[in-house]
Structures are given as structure tokens and as C-alpha cells.
Nucleic acid binder design. Structure first.
Lengths: 343, 343
DNA sequence: ATTTTATCCGCAAGCGTTTGCACAATGTAA
DNA sequence: TTACATTGTGCAAACGCTTGCGGATAAAAT
């Protein structure tokens, strides 16, 4: 039951030439005569020779595999991102070794370990929600496995990353609401520590002050993304003394929960209260009251860009000009963009 | 910039013993004395030795990698399935090489080719919607790369597969509606050729006749899953001479489109017309009128089972008892189950 | 004292490829 | 004729690891 696949050696013995000649012939090496070249290629095709990649990987110390670690594939953002990753990877003949951390730090470490063992050439990571310690990433330096982070970026210096700037989109969202006549605009933001949360807040403050609406902190609430906390925040906003006529929510899921809560409180959606959100998920097409608009974060593009820069990094490494310590770090930032839903 | 990672050789020379002794010491081989064993392990830990897996893969002719080819990760079914796959794989120390066919036959072939090149130990495949030719699967025999199909199964004999039987769930769905008093029950089914479509129909007919409601073919319409065709089918059903009071739809997305269409036609959902569906997607929680119930197909479980049988197959292969041609084929069938949504 | 038996260890082959180097043969310029 | 490219080919090492086999040493049995 052995894998008796054809090897270079077989071709060589059958043709009575040396293995190296066969190898070179198949690679179209110039130093091989045309006659032997065709003879070899002919036979190779005939017996369906295919090089043993594992041997090549080993010999070249390169696997043409990139590892991807992300929190949760069932989130539309990430499943879209991985499509971008895959497409970009395949275009350069890389394959994708995938793993989900499910937002567990432990799992994340394990995954990094497996990826390391499998000698992936590079790594694409979107860190878990709970990761605060970054040693396991830094340990990879030793193996000279480059990492490109995307979307969820650790807060350490000297890393490559691709992210989407939420400030701009947030400003657009506020302006959109302002143009529609809203003057009291609330926000249900995400967990306080998340950079994503901070960026949204920053954009909010920026836009509000620019619009000469003063920034009222009581209109900005944090939630932990659970349905309960979203409902609580919604209720608090809608019963506060300054009742907003529009609310910007951390993402589409939050928006949907908030809508439900508002309805339960007998508010008329899009009349008494409007919602604008982030993510632009397709599912919002099916809901009774989708947010009026969503800030798009371009996950596919993020995945694609991240992969491209990683592959770029990898080819640089090959050119061995990485000797100098003045390594430059890629910081690629896409601009988010408000997508208004046509009703 | 070479990868100067520690190797067995280094340990060997530093300790003035042979490479083979080091290897055995690290594997706790009984023929190595306790003293040298500890010395070796000590040093190994100290210099952070880690075996070069690519070398091992090559040497052992095994990569501990399983390839997964599926149509579309952004479909909740598959992102859930891959979680099951991942979890089961990791449990047995396998990793997952992933690729999406996006329902393109060409892409599917390419992916199989890459997987083959990467010498995955085995393959998990859910075939693309458009695959009718199965040669590219059979070509894998030559490499003795076992395949386990899941959910979307090709119609060829002698394959391993894991699937979910829709008949039972469909019967449950019809019975559920019957119990609620519905007597005229329509169906918006999927593309005619799909096995999934046929199973649903079979269950429908079975349940209807068992309930002594005669099977009326004009109540069963096919659609190609696009919004337009769903709406057309819905309209046709709701304007037909025998107007159904309940409709079973091919999946939740179809249900949502159908609901929209019915609303547009001024039908009161859950009053004039009820919906029951398949898939049980979480998003239905957020919609105004989710289907009353959904037939669950247990994607996570399917993925898990498929992986387990594949790994089982792989270990059998190792035991080299595959000599005999009387190979048995795994046909694992899960039963679908109706999940009634609590309102 | 001699043979047997553990116990411990090293040699070397092999996995399939790539590639620097040397060598042979042929042709070309001095 | 001699020297020198040019072209075509093979040798052998290297990548890092596993493993069958045989050899050494020491302890135990005869």
C-alpha cells in the first residue's frame, strides 16, 4: 500500500541519465540539450510525474503556505475577509492554513504553535477580543515568520498591519444624520477597551463639534455587545432627559437589538428614532427596520491587502536584504465609508 | 538571514553523542539511558529545540494536514461546518488547509490540484453546485488520498460521505403545520437537479399522503434561489386557485424573500399565510417575521463526523490493512430535525 | 573464567529535490 | 596544432529526521 508515485529517479533510470539532468530538464534549464529535454518531458508526462512538494518544501525551507488566525468565521466580516485572503494567496501560489481562535487567548496560542510547527512562511492574524499579552506573537520573531495583522491589531510597536480607519466613516454617519435634521444624536458603542470603540468615539466627537453640536458624554453609552446590555443602553438613551432622535450603533447586530428594544418601548422606528450602524451586513436587507445607513469596513479588501503585503514581505525576505535593522513597517489604512441603504 | 534554528545535529555535537541517540532520547526511546536522556532533554529545552516538521513530513510521507474544499464560507451552514471540522481535526493533531470553490467547477479542480500538491493526507469536500463531472475526484485514487464528502455529495458509487437526511425533518415540518390546522400546504423548493431538492420533495409527498392530504403537484414550485424567482414562486402560489395557508421554503433566505413578497401582496404573515423553512439561521431572530420553525441540518456535527471518519480512514491506511479490495464505505446519515421557534 | 543477557549507543541508509562544481565532448578562433 | 569557449551531462552534497542493525560495554548467569 505504499505510495508508489513516480520520482525523478524513475525517469532517470528509465532514460539512463542522471537525476540532476532530469530535474534540470523539467525546469527548462538552459544547460540541457533540446533532445534530452524533450525526451524527459515526454516521459514525465507519460507516467504522470508530479514533483513531491513536501520534498521541495523541505529542501527549500519554504512551504508556500500562509497561516491565518482569526476569531470567528461565522461573523460575516471574517468570512468575507478570508475570501480576500484566499484569492490573493492563490494568485501568488500560496495556500492557506486556517484556524479560528473563537476569541480565546489559549486557542490563539495553540494555533500559533501549530502554525509554527507547520513552518508556514508567514502569518495573518486578527487577534482575539481578549488578547492583552502579546508574547506569543513576539516569539515568532525567532523563526523569522513575518506577521501581518489585520482589523484587530495588537497595541505594540513595530508591526505590520492593515486596518480600516473608522473615524472618517463615523464622521460621514453623523453628517448624514445632521443633514437629515437630527440634532441630538446618541451612540451605543462597544467595549471600552477596544480600539474600534475608541475610534468610533473619536469620530463622533470630531463630527459633533465640527457641526457645532456640543459633545454630550451622556449620549454615548458602552455595551459589551450582548443583547441584554444593548437593550439596557437603548432604554437608557431613550428615557434620558436629552432624548436622541438618532442613534449610531457599534455594528449591525447591535442596531437590530436596539431596534427591537425601541419597538418594545413603542417608539416608531425611522420616525421617532433612527439608526445608523457599522458593518453593512447583507442580513439587514431582510429585517423589518434596517439601519438607514452602515459604515462599510471592506473586509474582503482588508484581507486581500494584508495578504499582498505579507507576500511582499516574504519575497523581500528571499532577497535577503533584510540584513539591515531599519526594517520598515507596513501600516496600511483603508478608509471606511458610509453606505446609505436605498429603501 | 538564514533560519538558524537548532537541529538534532547541534545537540548531538554539543553533547558529543550521535544524532540518532539525540533523536531517540527526545522520543523517550527505551534503549537510551536515563542519564543521557535527561542531558539531551535538558539541552533541548535550553536551546529551545523544536523538530522541523517539514523534514518529518517529508521523511514520513505524511503531513498531518487535511484539505477542506467547500463552496462558500459566508454561508452560515459552511462556516459552522468548518468549525466542526477544525475542532475535530485539532483534537487529533491535524491541521486544516482550506479552500472555497465559490461554486465554480474550475476552482474546485484547481483546489484539488493544490491540495494534491501539498500532499494533504485526506480531503473533506462539499461539492460545488455546478459539479456534474467527477473525474477530478477519482483522479485522487492514484494518490491514495481518501475523500470524505459531506452535505453536498456527488452521485457516484463507492464513496465515503456524511450527510443529513432531509426527509424526516420535512415530514416533521408538514406534521407541525398539520397540527396547527393547515390543510393546504405549499412548497417553494430549490433547483430541480439538486439532491437536496429531491429529498425535500420526497418528504413532502410522504407526509402529505400519510396525513391523507392528497399530493397536489401544483402546490410545489421550484426556484433557483434568486430573489426574483422566489418572489415569482410566492406570487404564483398565493394567487393560484388552491391558495395555501402555509408554505415550506427551501431555506431561511428563501423564506425571508417569500415573506417580503407576501407582505407586498398584503397578506398578513402568520395569519393569512405561515412559513416553515430549513437551516435555522441565527439571523432569523432579527427579522420581523421569522419562519415559525426551521429544519436544522446540524452543520457543525456534519463537519465533525466527516472529519472523524476521515481520520479514522487515515489511521486504517497506516495499519496497511487496506490490501484487500473489499473496502467498506462509510455512509453516515444524520437525521434533520424540526426546530420550532419560540416566539 | 566463560558465556549469556541486558543495556546503551553509533553507523549509515533513505526520504525526493536542487544545485555548485567538475568533466567530457564538440566546435571555434588563434 | 594549440588554446579556449560552448554545450551537455553527471557526481555528490545538502536539507533534518527516523530507524534497522550491529557493536560495545557492563552486569548477570553458568
Amino acid at each position: 500500500m505504499k505510495n508508489n508515485l513516480p520520482t525523478l529517479k524513475e525517469i532517470a533510470t528509465q532514460l539512463n541519465i542522471s537525476i540532476s539532468t532530469v530535474s534540470r530538464a523539467l525546469h527548462d534549464h538552459k544547460s540541457i540539450g533540446l533532445r534530452t529535454k524533450t525526451r524527459v518531458q515526454e516521459l514525465a508526462r507519460q507516467i504522470q510525474y508530479e514533483p513531491n512538494q513536501t520534498a521541495i518544501f523541505f529542501q527549500q525551507g519554504k512551504t508556500f503556505t500562509i497561516g491565518v488566525i482569526l476569531p470567528e468565521l461565522s461573523e460575516a466580516f471574517f468570512s468575507s475577509a478570508i475570501s480576500g485572503i484566499e484569492d490573493a494567496a492563490h494568485k501568488s501560489n500560496y495556500t492557506v492554513l486556517m484556524g479560528q481562535s473563537h476569541d480565546s487567548v489559549e486557542k490563539e496560542k495553540q494555533l500559533i504553535d501549530t502554525m509554527k510547527k507547520h513552518r508556514v512562511d508567514g502569518l495573518l492574524i486578527s487577534i482575539s477580543k481578549n488578547t492583552t499579552n502579546y508574547e506569543h506573537f513576539e516569539a515568532l520573531q525567532r523563526y523569522s515568520i513575518p506577521i501581518v495583522f489585520f482589523d484587530r491589531i495588537p497595541k505594540i510597536p513595530n508591526i505590520h498591519y492593515v486596518a480600516c480607519n473608522m473615524i472618517n466613516g463615523t464622521v460621514q454617519a453623523i453628517n448624514f444624520l445632521f443633514a437629515k435634521g437630527h440634532r441630538i444624536i446618541g451612540m451605543i458603542n462597544g467595549p471600552e477597551k477596544l480600539p474600534a470603540t475608541k475610534e468610533r468615539l473619536e469620530g463622533y466627537i470630531l463630527a459633533m463639534t465640527k457641526s457645532r453640536l456640543k459633545y454630550d458624554p451622556s449620549l454615548v453609552l458602552n455595551c459589551d455587545l450582548t443583547k441584554e446590555s444593548v437593550c439596557a443602553a437603548t432604554e437608557k438613551l431613550l428615557t434620558g432627559k436629552r432624548r436622541p432622535t438618532a442613534i449610531v450603533t457599534f455594528n449591525d447586530y447591535v442596531a437590530l437589538d436596539a431596534v427591537q428594544q425601541a419597538q418594545k418601548m413603542k417608539f416608531k422606528i425611522n420616525k421617532d428614532i433612527c439608526f445608523v450602524s457599522y458593518a453593512n451586513l447583507p442580513l439587514t436587507n431582510y429585517t423589518a427596520y434596517p439601519p438607514l445607513a452602515s459604515v462599510e469596513q471592506f473586509p474582503y479588501l482588508q484581507g486581500q491587502k494584508a495578504t499582498e503585503t505579507l507576500i511582499d514581505l516574504l519575497s523581500q525576505k528571499n532577497n535577503a536584504l533584510a540584513e539591515n535593522g531599519n526594517a520598515a513597517y507596513y501600516k496600511i489604512i483603508l478608509e471606511s465609508q458610509l453606505m446609505v441603504h436605498n429603501k
